[in-house]
Design a protein around this nucleic acid. Sequence first.
DNA 1: ATAAACAGTGAATCATCATTCACTTTTTGT
DNA 2: ACAAAAAGTGAATGATGATTCACTGTTTAT
Lengths: 206, 206
Amino acid sequence: MAYRETEKMRKRKAEARQRIIDCTYECVTEGGFRSARITRIAGLAEVATGTIYRHFESREDLFAEVFRLATEKEITKVTEALNTPGNAAERLEAALRQFSERALRGPVMAWSLLAEPVDPKVEEERLAYRKAYADLFEKTIRHGIEEGCIPEQNARQSSTCLVGAIAESLVGPLSPTHTNQTTNKNDPLVDAIIRFCMQGLTGTRR
Amino acid sequence: MAYRETEKMRKRKAEARQRIIDCTYECVTEGGFRSARITRIAGLAEVATGTIYRHFESREDLFAEVFRLATEKEITKVTEALNTPGNAAERLEAALRQFSERALRGPVMAWSLLAEPVDPKVEEERLAYRKAYADLFEKTIRHGIEEGCIPEQNARQSSTCLVGAIAESLVGPLSPTHTNQTTNKNDPLVDAIIRFCMQGLTGTRR
DNA sequence: ATAAACAGTGAATCATCATTCACTTTTTGT
DNA sequence: ACAAAAAGTGAATGATGATTCACTGTTTAT
């Protein structure tokens, strides 16, 4: 036996893998998945194209992983917002706001995650991602129903509607064709989305 | 001058063009845009592949046209539902029901129109299509506000949310992975979607 | 009948990039 | 120093179908 993977090597490989992921992330942030070329990613990461295939089965797999990671970051943020103090309705509102504002702040990535046409494996990740949001919302709606601040309803269905309403409202402004003006912090768009959603949920105007 | 396009020829060309469109429609109905091959379409339409390019600039253009036509059909149906008797809120509800039920009845095409990843030109059509729905809904919401059956609100924003909520709710059940059981006429899914949407709109539980 | 103008054809071409793999370089234990 | 085992390389390959275009067939007006 002459070669055996050592800690040093494991670390170096992990670093290369991470660099590839980071550079892919960067490319996607610039122009979405479709325009992210393997050669470009390899160039940025300072590895050969072949090396990318030592770390990922295929372009699609690499993209699926990057999608998943980007998604996890977003979900974490929304989860944090859901854990702020307040009743379920208030926390849900904070979460919707967090979601929307983050999307408007990183519009290309948000568009890629929400609406860019992608290959099947990545699309699968997207379905999972949307489901994850719906799950979070659903749980909180159930809490709200127990607490009494949200009326009895089909929590799963309502959470799906929430995800759809927000996504649709953002896709227009996020779309690459739509020239993006500066996003002011307290966007009235976000308020209007939230008003509709909370009303759909609670049946209460404010 | 020896040849000049005559009525007979114009008609024959129009027929071929129509046949190409019909066969593309058929292919999309079976498996969506991605799997619709030019050779297959040409075969069905009984023309050579080259002939397709006498009628359409490119595959993308052909698809965009088919998308537009399929869309127009749907929009017509929803418009009809919006023109039934009743107040604005009731008519809107009828429209949402029409939209959902038609989608569940023709799931592959509905999925292609709503969510299948498509090329940019077709995606553009999709944005137009969604905007067309939003426009219809918006107009009716405005009527409702005048009539007094819908409270004051940002009609444009609400209509966008409606489109998103419905689309998202349907994408799951329509998705090709989701095994489609028989769609019973009075689907509880449709009722739940409509409940959320109408509540978001009117702030009224029923 | 003729020829100009166009429509129809489909095998061959082409474009695009992801992916491969034969080779080089590096690492490791003896 | 040596050789086994990996890791790294990037030019060449390959797969996929859309698209082209040189040619054939049709239509029309004279």
